[in-house]
């Protein structure tokens, strides 16, 4: 089997002197969706941030398309083709929707019009509200702006930290649909989710983390079917 497109391998580390991750491995194939689930405090977001270079690893490495990027800053990883949508404060609230997208494409020197058109196709409501300040939008729309902003760099991998936190179930389904659409266009998706059942349902690969280590790793459907995963993490 060829190496996955993006892999954080045997990652160990944390924010301070105490390690949160203990040899945790997360990977995603090209054009697929990988989902990280697990109980609170399992280090889900930390694992994602580790892959993105937002904390110093004391062990393990991160490979993107075969290249070792462990030492790169998050900014440099953006240039390498990684997009990241933080869980909170993920939009520029005082700027318009369109300006948010423009800022997303800040590192690009070429014409961004076609990318912006693609984002608007993906999220038609944003086109409608493109001159409105992003801070005035509803929660679901803000998440769309956030995802749209990250897509503007034309990333090869899109990383989402709990994209559905705080939105209604209907909006959540809608967002998941859009995320599937993004994946179909060839962009790998790595995301952390609280709504484990729905997320695993759309996942090609699922990671169940407990206390900073991999507890279960399988396809999304297999994990959903696994009685132990169901009992321990999906509430029966």
């Amino acid at each position: 089997m060829a190496a996955p497109f993006l892999i954080g391998e045997a990652m160990t580390g944390g924010y301070g002197p105490v390690d949160i991750l203990h040899g945790c491995t997360i990977a995603v194939e090209k054009g697929q969706i990988a989902v990280i689930v697990g109980p609170n405090g399992a280090g889900k977001s930390t694992a994602m941030k580790a892959v993105f270079g937002m904390l110093n690893l004391r062990g393990g490495r991160v490979l993107l398309d075969g290249e070792d990027i462990t030492k790169l800053t998050p900014q440099a990883r953006v240039r390498k083709g990684m997009g990241f949508v933080p869980q909170t404060s993920n939009i520029f609230t005082s700027m318009t929707v369109e300006e948010n997208l423009e800022m997303g494409a800040f590192i690009r020197e070429d014409d961004i019009k076609s990318t912006m058109a693609q984002v608007y196709d993906l999220f038609p409501i944003l086109k409608q509200k493109r001159h409105q300040s992003a801070g005035e939008l509803s929660g679901g729309q803000r998440q769309q702006v956030a995802v749209g902003r990250a897509l503007m760099t034309q990333p090869k991998v899109l990383m989402l930290d709990e994209p559905t936190a705080g939105v209604s179930p209907i909006v959540m389904d809608e967002l998941f649909d859009r995320i599937i659409e993004v994946a179909r266009s060839g962009i790998s998706i790595l995301m952390v989710e609280q709504n484990a059942r729905q997320a695993l349902d759309i996942a090609d690969k699922g990671y169940v983390l407990v206390q900073g280590t991999n507890r279960f790793t399988d396809t999304g459907q297999a994990l959903l079917a696994d009685p132990e995963v169901r009992r321990s993490f999906l509430g029966g």
Partner: peptide
């Protein structure tokens, strides 16, 4: 572009860094 990047930086420093 530079002016907008100033506003973006003022609005949300971390996200501005993420945007390069």
């Amino acid at each position: 572009r530079t002016g907008k990047s100033m506003r973006a930086f003022s609005d949300n420093e971390d996200l501005a860094l993420l945007s390069g």
